[in-house]
Design a binder for these strands. Sequence first.
DNA 1: CCGACAATAT
DNA 2: GATATTGTCG
Length: 650
Amino acid sequence: MTVETRMGDPGDQFPVGMRVLAVDDDPTCLLVLETLLRRCQYHVTTTSQATMALKMLRENKDKFDLVISDVHMPDMDGFKLLELVGLEMDLPVIMLSANGDPKLVMKGITHGACDYLLKPVRIEELKNIWQHVIRRKKFDAKDRNKGISQDKAHSGSGNGLKSAGTGNSDQNGKMNKRRKDQDEEDEENENGHENDDPSTQKKPRVVWSVELHRKFVAAVNQLGIDKAVPKKILDLMNVEKLTRENVASHLQKYRLYLKRISCVTNQQAHMVAALGSADPSYLRMSPLGGLGHLQTLNSVFRSFPPSGMIGRLNTPAGLGVHGLPSSGIPPLGHGQNLNNSMNDPLKFPSTMVGGNQNASAIQGMPVSIGFNQLRQNKAITSVEDLNTGIDDKTLLAIPNKLTDLRARTPLVGVTNNSLMLETHTQGTQGSRGYENLSSVASQHPEFPLPFLDHGRCSDDWSTAVQSSGIHPISSYPSTQCFRQSAIPSTDNMHLKPLHVGNPSAASSIDSVTDMPSQGPTFTNTPSQICSNALFQGWDDHNQDDNFQSMNSLIPVNGAVGPSGHAPINDLDYNYGDLLQMKHAEVTKSAKEKPNQGYIMDQQKAQHSRTTNSLGSLEDLVSAMMKQEQNKVKLMEGEFMCDSYSGGTSM
DNA sequence: CCGACAATAT
DNA sequence: GATATTGTCG
């Protein structure tokens, strides 16, 4: 939006004053970058920490037009930041790296980067980066407004759903694709033909590609989670052949996803608390502080990093939900994770959890990303990790140092939570999940949850989280997250945060990115879920090497279709599970062998449900959000400090 | 066989 | 419209 406005103004020329957030851990590079950007007459904001960048973005979703980030950063992988941003806020992100390895570039692209610049960066390259802002904006507008007419057009032959395409800007090329199909004949029957019978059969399954998911998320965000109902979402999405039922089904999945997320978050918090003490391992994981990681969790969708994730989730945008993170959520991969990298986004098994792993991911949720690419890359992966990120680190981090975190937090801090705050309210629905969570939490003595009250975990959760883990959490918007606790009863879901800022913003941008999370709010319902599942989410896949890709939010991925159908093109996103991701991350270090820490976590988790609960970021998020809404203030007071929250966006 | 996902039923 | 159940598929 802002951009548009500007653009609109005759007076100013858009590029001038474009708000750019530059992120690089190397002070020198950052300074150089800042200088060059200023020469281009952009309004530049800098930060040497990715986590801080996320916080800033979450707090001020509509205060930036573009993000330019280094790939290699200690606190958070640039890709993760990318994913989270894509999910939570739809801002165009340009990756910067001294390493031009095609694989890295591909990764950046698949994770939603609109450009990938090699250092040293030349001013000539920076002079045109504003095009990405415009492009994104345009797409958004298109999508939104008209919607899709385009899509429809196509449909003719194929499926209508496609949807996807539009948006993306960046690279993508291929996006569309949806199903494969064979079968199908497409739509309708074609008639005739023989086929079988008519009727019947075929029904092409709708493949929720990243793009489609993106649209979904955008619609949800726009509506606000609480008001996002299938019919309205369908209207906003404006995708041809998509039916209300299709949307309802996806919404169901998406809501579960959000819950998970929130749970995860909570878990994390708990874990943190519990761990509290000790495990070095955790520390290891997150060097920085825990913040980052925690945030990651937020991201549930994959991408989101530590704070990010949550934030995302929290944020409306991120969730998409209005929450959720993500708007997109992005996510992908299946359980297999590794194996498939690409395909299923969501799925990661959660290691964490013990049993459950599974989380399911949602496919599409997350973001989008480069669709095509994704596919191609499948291998690469995407993943997003939305969740994960956070978790892992979070967890990890936390223990170590709460203190540190706290301290840090402030720094970060930033952000506001405003987003989250937004709402609050009500309560109606659903709380179910929360209750469980709480109970869970309470149940396990193991964890010490310092703060929590036991009684209700729910409520406490928030607190608990805060306290303990908080920090990490803090990252997220606090609000969101924590709130959950409160939630239980109420349940309010609403969190809409995303929009918060401006919904539009989120949406607007969006298009391209991924999806996942864009903004939505989520609801929060808690579900017990946690325990089990997290989702796979949108994200994911990536595992690869990349760092945490798993976590990342982005959905990238590709997709596969669930059924097999389509994998092809689309990426489906899955909602990934945060937890898994987290684990993954953790694991990462050790990869195969889990670190002690890792293990511990798991165990803990298992033992206590709490953990599990925490596991789902969504839930956490949701809860948080809700709670936050309710309590935001409290939180802020207490914990917030640190945290800040941020998240929103995405 | 199980888990995830979308469709379908309630 | 929200949920629960079912059918497919990987």
